[in-house]
């Protein structure tokens, strides 16, 4: 049994975007804060901190989840992907990111990394989702700039191409 006491820092290890990483966390440290403050991966954004806005969405074991509703210590040993893991090694944007750029699916960009992670999970399970299925996924995010039209256009283009991997 794992027992971690409060007021003590504990070593947390997991695989982030394909590479093993580690850092120190209190038991109560949120995964979102751990990614940003301990690991310096600031692509994951923090909005409401109670699971509503979707800005902090990352993939844990492939599944899009709220990193603000997950403790860093709960991520121990898992495979985690953040927005930093989407582009190729050469920095080239992937198909989904390219579609976002083409369709002006972002303005301030605060919600973008979370939406990209949710859509990436969806496209990996279903390369050609319907508009309704995309709306269900995008419905888990708050965007205050775009009115969602560009986001839907970008996702639909990727769905039509069936190339959202």
């Amino acid at each position: 049994m794992l027992k971690l006491e409060k007021d003590t820092r504990h070593k947390v290890r997991f695989v982030l975007n394909g590479s093993p990483v580690s850092g120190w966390a209190d038991a109560r440290m949120l995964l979102s804060d751990f990614l940003r403050q301990e690991l310096g991966e600031t692509g994951t954004h923090v909005g409401c901190e109670h699971g509503v806005c979707g800005a902090c969405t990352v993939r844990i074991e492939g599944r899009a989840v709220r990193s603000c509703l997950t403790l860093a210590v709960q991520a121990e040993g898992f495979d985690i992907q953040t927005v930093e893991g989407l582009a190729g090694d050469d920095g080239a944007l992937n198909a989904l990111q390219t579609a976002f750029r083409k369709h002006h699916a972002l303005q301030c960009g605060y919600c973008t990394s979370g939406i990209l992670m949710s859509l990436t999970d969806m496209f990996q399970r279903n390369p050609s989702p319907s508009r309704d299925e995309i709306e269900d996924v995008v419905g888990g995010h708050i965007c205050r700039c775009t009115g969602y039209a560009g986001i839907m256009d970008a996702a639909l283009e990727v769905a039509e191409a069936g190339a959202g991997k």
Binding site: M1, L2, K3, L4, E5, K6, D7, D26, A27, R28, L30, D33, E49, L71, V73
Partner: peptide, 17 residues
């Protein structure tokens, strides 16, 4: 906001929990 402080236990079985 952040949660208040707590100990965290991850038991290996229901009996341990």
């Amino acid at each position: 906001m952040k949660p208040s402080n707590f100990d965290y236990c991850r038991p290996d079985s229901v009996d341990e929990a």
